[in-house]
Structures are given as structure tokens and as C-alpha cells.
Design a protein around this nucleic acid. Structure first.
Length: 870
RNA sequence: GCCGAUGUGGCGAAAUGGCAGACGCAACGGACUUAAAAUCCGUUUCUCGUAAUUGGGAGUCCCGGUUCGAGUCCGGGCAUCGGCACCA
């Protein structure tokens, strides 16, 4: 097959411009105080989610968001902004480590190779990143500061008085380790045997690891945790000031899962059903004088009178103490059975409710009645108090359980527009009944009343609970940041900042031990910190590096501070709560990276290291690009599109333009090679508008290009295009901006003379989208005409002249009863009455109205007239 | 089950409550060419009709409503996709 002829010589000028941009460092943004910094210009920080440099290289999904931000960056620069547009590498992670296990090659080597490949691919697309600001999370100069931030977190606590993170030195209690924002806990964690590591809740999907899809089991282990739950309220509340998609805000709110309700104490009665009162209360052994009480959390305290039984989670600590001898063997059997179940089995909704009675009773504080205590696996130890009051009258799960085990069902809320029977099992608002002091109260009032009654009588209090768990922050992996922590006599302590970075030791064998002991433990000498102290051998999760990279971009070479104060203040400055002006990336990070980064940011903000409470002001999620078959791209389906091939065939400009022309940025959409061809044709038309080919096949500036003035229509479309493209870029509607540029070019293709005054602004508009061809044509024009100076990067964004867009006349659509029947042309200045007159004068309309009576005439100025007839 | 997003030609998609389908792809017809490719011009929602056009009717997932007028707003469904999921 012979090589297909290029419609325009992109293969010659695209590499030329890329090389020139690199040589001139055209997109380097100096920091305040540096040479060439212009303090008069406003700043604009436009950020991409930096990629994990995998061995497979870029796929067409990456450049979708990257092209959008690049258009924005180039547009803002031409509009007179100092633009921060950086790129880097989130390079710690499993694939490099697993490759190391297979081949023995050090992950750093694999990572370096992959980064080189990614970088060359990004450069071939012509992105205008400031490469002087490149960061790499696996570089000791970078992770030194990741470890430094960990020390800040370790050395602080959340002061409930101020609701702020503060230095641990302000803590007045006797056990600082119990309040640190980074702490060690023995907790049931997600253990993945195949990966040889524990995982965060966020990394477990349907009981399997997000990476690799391996089974995950709960297993108690000693782990580092970060106290993100302390920030739950602020993480919810401070979403309000952000320009994020509502759906993403909602996802975060749901993930944090704030529930307002009450904690209620049920006093227990061991083994007695019929008597209530003090005589039956048990005195738990070892806790002399205290009465065993079960605390439950509920969002519907108003249904307390309907609580006819209690259920404890099988892991609840009071079970041993409360279980009667008759019930003990059944209880133990049940607990053993539950313990052997996997997470998936346990949370299978379709299965029937199970549980056993433990022989004990508790007193419902509202009505003094004794209720039986059960254990069941539908109650989870991890949420609330690990115990519930069973209200089968108004909870579907409790109702199923009560029916299964024949427990009494008492309806206590009459929902509006429902009969008593219909209200059963549903948790709707209504009016309280069968509820003593609450009878007749609407649900919100009933809640308030019962909670104050509980507080007055010492049976409970208002309470707020969250689904969000503290963040499990340690991993049993080699390829991650080591903790700046040592252990001595079973106690952890922080290394000093001067010892950073803590560099991981060299290993011959990166394999996980399989026992939960981290691979770093194999480096015996490294572990020996001193005669007494041993190094922490866990490493941080991949999220650590990506939690703060946007800050490092502001000042990436700084070895004295994680980010210089002035640089941070300048690049994240402004009125809004968030610092990054535009952040574009995939939805897959809605609750992981975006929540973790906000958390770290708030800690650093509270401690006085940052000027804004939020990291990202405006967030946009690009949609997934599907294969040509409309299916998700995957190697196994064989529908993966490789950017390198597209660029070789059609050029980088066509690739960029197609990525943006496919459809709205946020939308999921399928790839189409034909579509790429379409935009390539458009770019070729742009080329031929200004260029002509001689006999030898060489291109030169077309003789049609003239500095004579454009005609009125040409001027008008030029300014209409400036207006539309500008507005569309601002609203990230790149597909319609491109449509408008196509309309512009179509309007000029048959013109004999191609006026410079139209082409100059057009090339500037085209430049953010297709910078190579725009730069090349600009340069060609400069060689002949002296009306402009400098290359494309030195130009200013054109402004639309509204006066040129004003029409003398306008075509009015004439409707009869909402159906279009005619059009008339009237002067722009015509009054409503004049328009009406002109419409009624139309012979066509006159004929159609014959014999009908006109009831009303609606005139929409400059648009339409609707005649309503009967 | 709960929450959210989306539903428009053969396809990707446009449309501050005011001409539905801009722009592009594909298809068809034509010009150029020995021929093909490329390029340029034209047609292209469906349907009925005419010798002819600025002809008639229907049409934005379905049912209903508000309005002079609804793809757009409101109510109720259906479908697809995404998130959460025994969270008390």
C-alpha cells in the first residue's frame, strides 16, 4: 500500500513548531519575583489530573481532558493572563511493582521509561505545558515533602472547640497519641491476599480489589489511619462554595453520609422478661456499680415507642456479658458462622434475615417495656453503635426480621394519605400514634420532643453519625513513600524533618510476604534505625502523592519548603474559596482523590501553610470515550484507539480538533475514525484558503490573500465567529466553537479574494484548538504582510465589534396558531404595530385568514408573530 | 431498594420557552478526470401530494398538564447508563 497523500503538510510543520516551543520555552510561566514575571496580568491556574504512567502509553481518553485544558490555557494566555498549566506523574503504584516482581527490574527504571514515553506522546500532541514545572511523585525531591506533610498531620489534632486542625502541642489531655490526625489502630481492614496488602474502603468494589478484581476479606490488623472523619462536617459544608457538578458534590455528600438523629440508651435486664424495674438490672462483672446499657443510634427517635426488640451486631462487645447460659451455645454457633462468611455473602440483600436470641432483655426507656435482645448480621459493627432498636412498624429490614422470628409489630406513625396497614414497614413522615407523650405530633416535632425528653431523663441525646470511616493509610508494598516513623518499645515516634526524605531500601525481591508483613521488612539493615529503634516498614498509598501535587506545581524546584509562600499565594489567589481555577478529569476520582486532597488541604490550611480552604474551585469531568463499536475501550475487545496512529495519519491538530468536536466534553461518546477525517478535511480547507500548490507540489501563500478590506458580509461573519468562539471557550462548549469556525471557513471557500483582516483574527481563534497549523499560517502571512508582528504566541485575543453584528433588517416568522405559515422582512427598528401591519399585509397570510376571526396577535420583537384565530 | 444523569435523523450532535435537526459523518446525484483518489457543487427527519413552488400532514422515549407557542417548564410512567447499597 502506498502512503496516502497528506491533505496538507502537517507532518512537516507540526514537529517544527513543537521543537520551537520547546527551544523558546514559549509556555513557561515565571513565578512572582522571577525574570519576565508581569504582575499586572491576572493569573489563571488550569490543571489536569496527572496520569499514572503505565507501560501501555496514552490512550485517546487521556488527551480529551488535556486538550480541553490546553485550549483554555492557550486562550487565557492570548487574553492576557499569566497561565499556570503544568503536567506531572503519579508514578507510585502497583503495576510497576508487579512488573518488578516478575522481572526483577527496579520499579524506578520501569517508571522512568514509561514517563519518557508518556512525555513524548504528550509533546507530539502539542500541549502547551510548562515542562519546567514537571513533577514526579516518586522523585525523592517530591516525596520528601509528601513525608513532610505526613509529619504535619501526625503532629496535629482536631480541636473540637475550634473545629480546626491544630498543632498537637495545643492538646491538653494526657494521651496525645489518642487524638493525632495520623494514628495506629487495630482495626478490621480490607486484606487482599493476591495483592499482599490492605486496601482503603474506597479501593474495594463489590468485595473485590479495585485493582485486579481480587477477593478482599476483613481481617484485624495494626494499621496507620488518618482521622478524616473529624473533617466530615467541613468536607460537606464547604462543597457549597465550589463550582463543581452537582452530581459530584452529591456523590461526596453521600459518601460522607451524614445522618442526624439520636443516641438512645437501653438498660439491660438479664434473663427476665416479665419484671421491669431496678430489681432485674444486671451488674456487669468487672465494672462495679455501672449498669450494662446498650446504646443505639437512630435517625427516627420518634419511633421509639415502636421499638419491640433490639439487635446487636455479632461482633458487639457486650454479647458475652449479656448472653444467658441457655442461649450461649446457639449464640456462639451463630457468631462463628457469621465470622466465616465473606463480605459478599454477608451483605447479600436477597437472602433471608438470620439471627438468634441471646436470652437477655432491655428496657425501652419510653414505655418501660421489656424488649428481647437478639444478634443478627444485618446489623453492622462499623456503623452507628453496632446495635439498633428494632422498629418493625417502620423499617423494612426490621419488619422482615420481626416476621421471620415472630416479634411484635407496633405501628407508631400514621403517614398522610395512607391507611394504618399501608404505613407498616415504611419510614415516612406522618403523625405519631401509640406513642404516649408524642401522640398527635408531626414527625419533625415528635423527634424534637422525644430527644429533649431523652436528654432530660438521661436516656440519650441528639447525635450525628457518618458513613465515612477514617482513612486506612498504610500499604504493604514496596513502591510507595516510606513513613517517617520509627518504633521503640512498641511506641511510634516521628523522625525529624531534617532526616527527610526517607528513601526506600534497595531490595532483590519485591514480593509481598503474604503474611501482612511489608516487603520493606526484608531490608534488615535499613529497618535497624538505631540500637533500640526500628523503622516503620509500611508505605503510603498511591493517593498520598496526588493529594498535594497541584500545590507543588506552584513552586516545583523549592527544596526549602513544600511550596513557597508567595508562589502559593499568587497562583491560588483570588476571591473564590478554591485555588485552582479549572480542574479537568474523570469521574472515577469523585470520592477518592478529590476527597483525600480536600482533607489534606484543609489540614494544611488550618495549620497556616495555605491561603485557601479548598483546593479546586471549578471542576469539570470529561466523559469516557468509547470504541468505534460503542463499547468501553479494552484490550480484550480490540477496540482501543492509539493516539500515535491517529496523529501519524491525520496530524496532531486534527486529533485535537476531533477530540473536541465529538460532542460535549462531559458526555460519554464513541470514537469515529471517519469523524477524524472530517475535521482533517476542515483543516485542509483552512490550509488551502491561504495556501496554493505549485507544479512541483510545493505550498506557498495564495495570490488570493489580500490586504484589501473585507466586504460587509465577511466582516459580519468574522465578528460573529469571534463572539461565538469566545463565549463557547468560556463555557467549555468546544464542539460548537468548532462548528462556528467551520461555518466561517465555508463562507470564504468560494471567495475570490481572501481578506487578511478576516484571516488574522480567525487564525488566533483557531490557535488554541489547532495551534500548529495556526502558527504556520500566521508565520506565512507575516513573511508577505507587515500588518502584524511576532509569532502566534505573542498575539492578543480578538474582540468582537458588536456594531458590525447589528442588522438593518430582520426576517420575522409568521405563525398562525403556532404553525409557521410565512416569513416577512421588516426593518430592525420596526415597532410591534408596524410588524403587525406588515404581517397582515402579506397576501399569503391574508388568504389564510380569510373567513376566520383573529383573536389575538402575539409579537415577539425581531423574531416572530403568532396570530391566534378561532 | 435509594440517589443521580441521559433519551432528538442512518450516525456524532445543534437549538436564552419562539423556524427542530446548525456543524460534521455516512449515503445518493452532479462537475472535474482516460480512470480512480482528492477537490468542488447539490440532495438527504418521515410521509402524502403536485406540471411546478415558499404545497399538506406527522415528528425531539411514552401519557397528561401549563402556555398564544414546549425538545426546552410541571406531574406521572418507561428505557439506558452511573453511584451507593442491610448505613439503622
Amino acid at each position: 500500500m502506498s502512503e496516502r497523500r497528506k491533505p496538507y503538510p502537517f507532518d512537516q510543520f507540526e514537529p517544527k513548531w513543537q521543537a520551537l516551543w520547546e527551544k523558546e520555552q514559549s509556555f513557561h510561566a515565571p513565578n512572582p519575583g522571577e525574570k519576565d514575571f508581569d504582575s499586572r496580568k491576572p493569573k489563571f491556574y488550569v490543571l489536569d489530573m496527572f496520569p499514572y504512567p503505565s507501560g501501555a502509553g496514552l490512550h485517546v481518553g487521556h488527551p480529551e481532558g488535556y486538550t480541553a485544558t490546553d485550549i483554555m490555557a492557550r486562550y487565557k494566555r492570548l487574553s492576557g493572563c499569566n497561565v499556570l498549566h503544568p503536567m506531572g506523574w503519579d508514578a507510585f503504584g502497583l503495576p510497576a511493582e508487579q512488573y518488578a516482581i516478575k522481572t526483577g527490574q527496579h520499579p524506578a527504571v520501569t517508571t522512568r521509561d514509561n514517563i519518557a514515553k508518556f512525555k513524548s506522546q504528550l509533546k507530539a500532541i502539542g500541549f502547551s505545558y510548562d515542562w519546567q514545572r514537571e513533577v514526579n511523585t516518586t522523585d525523592p525531591r517530591y516525596y520528601k515533602w509528601t513525608q513532610w506533610i505526613f509529619l504535619k498531620i501526625y503532629n496535629s489534632w482536631f480541636n473540637p472547640e475550634t473545629t480546626r486542625a491544630e498543632s498537637i502541642s495545643t492538646y491538653r489531655g494526657d494521651d496525645p497519641d489518642s487524638v493525632r490526625l495520623a494514628y495506629v489502630a487495630d482495626v478490621p481492614v480490607n486484606w487482599c491476599q493476591e495483592l499482599g496488602t490492605v486496601l482503603a474502603n474506597e479501593e474495594v468494589v463489590d468485595g473485590k480489589s479495585e485493582v485486579g478484581g481480587f477477593p478482599v476479606v476483613k481481617r484485624p490488623m495494626r494499621q496507620w489511619m488518618l482521622r478524616i472523619t473529624a473533617f466530615a462536617d467541613r468536607l460537606i459544608a464547604e462543597l457549597d462554595g465550589l463550582d463543581w457538578p452537582e452530581s459530584i458534590k452529591l456523590l461526596q455528600r453521600n459518601w460522607i453520609g451524614r445522618s442526624e438523629g439520636a443516641e438512645i440508651e437501653f438498660v439491660t435486664v438479664n434473663g427476665r422478661e416479665d419484671e421491669s424495674g431496678s430489681g432485674g438490672l444486671s451488674k456487669p462483672s468487672g465494672q462495679l456499680g455501672s449498669i450494662a446499657a446498650i446504646r443505639v443510634f437512630t435517625t427516627r427517635a420518634d419511633t421509639l415507642y415502636g421499638a419491640t426488640y433490639m439487635v446487636l451486631s455479632p461482633e458487639h462487645p457486650l454479647i458475652d456479658q449479656l448472653t444467658t447460659d441457655e442461649c450461649r451455645s446457639a449464640v456462639n454457633d451463630y457468631r462463628a458462622a457469621v465470622a466465616s462468611k465473606s463480605e459478599i455473602e454477608r451483605t447479600d440483600l436477597s437472602k433471608e434475615k438470620t439471627g438468634v436470641f441471646i436470652g437477655a432483655f432491655a428496657i425501652n426507656p419510653a414505655n418501660g417495656k421489656n424488649v428481647p435482645i437478639w444478634i443478627a448480621d444485618y446489623v453492622l459493627m462499623g456503623y452507628g453503635t453496632g446495635a439498633i432498636m428494632g422498629v418493625p412498624g417502620h423499617d423494612q429490614r426490621d419488619l422482615e426480621f420481626a416476621r421471620r422470628f415472630d416479634l411484635p409489630v407496633v405501628p407508631v406513625v400514621q403517614a398522610a394519605e395512607k391507611t394504618r396497614e399501608e404505613s407498616i414497614g415504611f419510614l415516612e413522615d406522618g403523625v405519631a400514634m401509640n406513642s404516649g407523650i408524642l401522640d398527635g405530633l408531626a414527625t419533625p416535632d415528635a423527634k424534637k420532643k422525644i430527644i429533649s425528653w431523652l436528654e432530660e431523663n438521661g436516656h440519650g441525646r441528639a447525635d450525628i453519625r457518618y458513613k465515612l470511616r477514617d482513612w486506612l493509610f498504610s500499604r504493604q508494598r514496596y513502591w510507595g513513600e516510606p513513613f517517617p516513623i520509627v518504633w521503640e518499645d512498641g511506641k511510634h515516634s516521628a523522625l525529624s524533618e531534617s532526616e527527610l526524605p526517607i528513601v526506600p531500601p534497595e531490595l532483590d525481591d519485591y514480593k509481598p510476604t503474604g503474611t501482612g508483613e511489608p516487603p520493606l521488612a526484608k531490608a534488615k539493615e535499613w529497618v535497624l534505625y538505631s540500637d533500640q529503634a526500628r523503622r516503620e516498614t509500611n508505605t503510603m498509598p498511591q493517593w498520598a502523592g496526588s493529594c498535594w501535587y497541584y500545590l507543588r506545581f506552584c513552586d516545583p524546584q523549592n527544596d526549602e519548603r513544600f511550596v513557597g509562600e508567595e508562589a502559593e499565594r499568587y497562583w491560588t489567589g483570588g476571591e473564590a474559596p478554591g485555588g485552582v481555577d479549572l480542574y479537568v478529569g474523570g469521574t472515577e476520582h469523585a470520592v477518592l482523590h478529590l476527597l483525600y486532597a480536600r482533607f489534606w488541604h484543609k489540614v494544611l490550611f488550618d495549620l497556616g501553610y495555605l491561603s485557601k480552604p479548598e483546593p479546586f474551585q471549578r471542576l469539570v469531568n470529561q466523559g469516557i470515550i468509547l470504541g468505534e463499536d460503542g463499547q468501553k475501550m479494552s484490550k480484550s475487545r480490540g477496540n482501543v484507539v492509539n493516539p500515535d496512529e491517529v496523529i501519524a495519519l491525520y496530524g496532531a491538530d486534527a486529533f485535537r480538533l476531533y477530540e473536541m468536536f465529538m460532542g460535549p466534553l462531559e458526555q460519554m461518546k464513541p470514537w469515529s475514525m471517519r469523524g477524524v477525517e472530517g475535521v482533517a478535511r476542515f483543516l485542509a480547507r483552512v490550509w488551502r484558503l491561504l495556501m496554493a500548490e505549485n507544479q512541483a507540489g510545493e505550498w506557498h501563500l495564495s495570490a488570493n490573500v489580500t490586504n484589501a478590506a473585507p466586504d460587509k458580509a465577511q466582516l459580519k461573519i468574522t465578528h460573529a465567529t469571534i463572539k461565538k468562539v469566545t463565549a463557547d471557550i468560556e463555557s467549555l462548549s468546544f464542539n460548537t466553537a468548532i462548528s462556528q469556525m467551520m461555518i466561517f471557513v465555508n463562507a470564504f471557500t468560494s471567495a475570490v479574494a481572501i481578506p487578511l483582516a478576516a484571516m488574522r483574527p480567525f487564525l488566533v481563534l483557531l490557535n488554541p484548538f489547532a495551534p500548529h497549523i495556526a502558527s504556520e499560517l500566521w508565520e506565512t502571512l507575516n513573511r508577505k504582510f507587515a500588518d502584524a508582528e511576532g509569532d502566534m504566541t505573542k498575539q492578543s485575543w480578538p474582540t468582537a465589534n458588536e456594531a458590525l453584528l447589528v442588522e438593518d433588517e430582520v426576517e420575522i416568522v409568521v405563525q398562525i396558531n403556532g404553525k409557521v405559515r410565512d416569513r416577512v422582512t421588516v426593518l430592525m427598528s420596526a415597532t410591534d404595530d408596524e410588524v403587525k401591519e406588515a404581517v397582515l399585509a402579506s397576501p399569503r397570510i391574508h388568504a389564510l385568514l380569510d373567513g376566520k376571526s383573529v383573536r389575538k396577535v402575539i409579537v415577539v420583537p425581531k423574531k416572530l408573530v403568532n396570530i391566534v384565530v378561532s
